[in-house]
């Protein structure tokens, strides 16, 4: 294309370009622009107001020597690994159960998925009530005669992640189940027939044949669940508000508190940049895998 054509090139398809302007602005200004802005400002000593006063990696040094951040990262890692494994395993088992040509499948699916329609705030508050030591599960088991029964994860720093897991899985497993169920339905009936003819037990067929075939669906679930885990914030605010002490803090909450409660913007920027990095580590290999897969087709 020669330079002479350039204005004409720009004007071609003009309504489409104008209509796509919100998308272009969102992509360039918000997703790229704002992210870069935050990354750049994470190298400054911004406190109450953002300013370009560069201090190198100081914010990161401070971040990685702040106990609260270290606890947050540790929590995220433990919660993340447990939530990921449990939601995939439970989600798959539930999907496999629902796939047995059962009656009331729609009913069961509705029940398993409804928490996903709720806000994390609602989920957090309900479970806070159920786990309340004076009224909830602990109280009821004690009422049954087990006077010394202790189950108070909300006030025990060693168990508080357990409470988050119970609530988080309650809300999120339904999504994994539904996606995996769709994946199971996509498996060719002939494969089941062949396995049956060969006398391979069902569990073995699942393990050896079906699950490997569903790898792309699992990858999708993995990415969706982990993207959700990194953002874990609302649930913590509603269920524990980071407590007891700092035992259930998460990186997303660290960012919010640094920016909006502690007037320590630099720390917030550095922490959010670390979150971005975590996501990139998860997303980039997946995207490359997907992309290459598509090319081969």
């Amino acid at each position: 294309m020669s330079g002479r054509d350039r204005p004409a090139q720009l004007l071609r398809n003009l309504p489409a370009k104008l209509a796509a302007l919100p998308m272009i602005l969102t992509a360039l200004v918000v997703f790229i622009g704002c992210s870069l802005w935050t990354v750049v400002h994470s190298f400054t000593k911004s406190r109450l107001l953002p300013k370009l006063d560069f201090v190198g990696l100081d914010q990161y040094d401070r971040l990685w020597s702040t106990p609260r951040w270290l606890v947050s990262i540790e929590n995220l890692a433990i919660y993340g690994i447990c939530a990921l494994i449990l939601s995939l395993v439970l989600g798959f088992v539930l999907a496999a159960l629902l796939d047995q040509k059962i009656r009331f499948e729609d009913g069961f699916r509705t029940i398993i998925l409804y928490p996903y329609a709720l806000s994390f705030i609602v989920t957090g508050l309900v479970w806070q009530w159920i786990l309340n030591p004076d009224f909830g599960i602990q109280n009821i088991v004690r009422g049954l005669g087990f006077e010394s029964f202790v189950f108070d994860p909300l006030h025990n720093p060693d168990q508080v992640l357990f409470a988050l897991l119970i609530a988080g899985l309650w809300q999120g497993t339904g999504l994994v189940t539904v996606i995996l169920l769709a994946g199971l339905r996509g498996i060719d009936e002939d494969i089941w027939k062949a396995a049956r003819v060969d006398g391979i037990p069902a569990w073995k067929t699942y393990l050896r044949v079906v699950i490997p075939m569903m790898r792309p669906v699992f990858a999708t679930c993995l990415v969706l669940v982990s993207a959700g885990i990194v953002k874990l914030y609302d649930l913590v605010v509603a269920l524990t508000n980071g407590g007891p002490g700092i035992a259930s803090e998460t990186p997303a909450k660290y960012v919010y508190d640094s920016m909006f409660n502690k007037q320590n913007l630099g720390q917030g920027f550095a922490a959010s940049t670390m979150m971005l990095l975590t996501v990139l580590i998860i997303i980039v290999p997946w995207a490359m895998f997907e992309f290459r897969g598509k090319r081969r087709d």
């Binding site: 918000v30 935050t38 953002k231 920027f269 940049t273 996501v279």
Partner: peptide, 12 residues
């Protein structure tokens, strides 16, 4: 962008 944590973009 759908995968970028919101925390990175909220302040700008």
């Amino acid at each position: 962008g759908a995968f970028i944590p919101y925390q990175v973009m909220i302040y700008p």
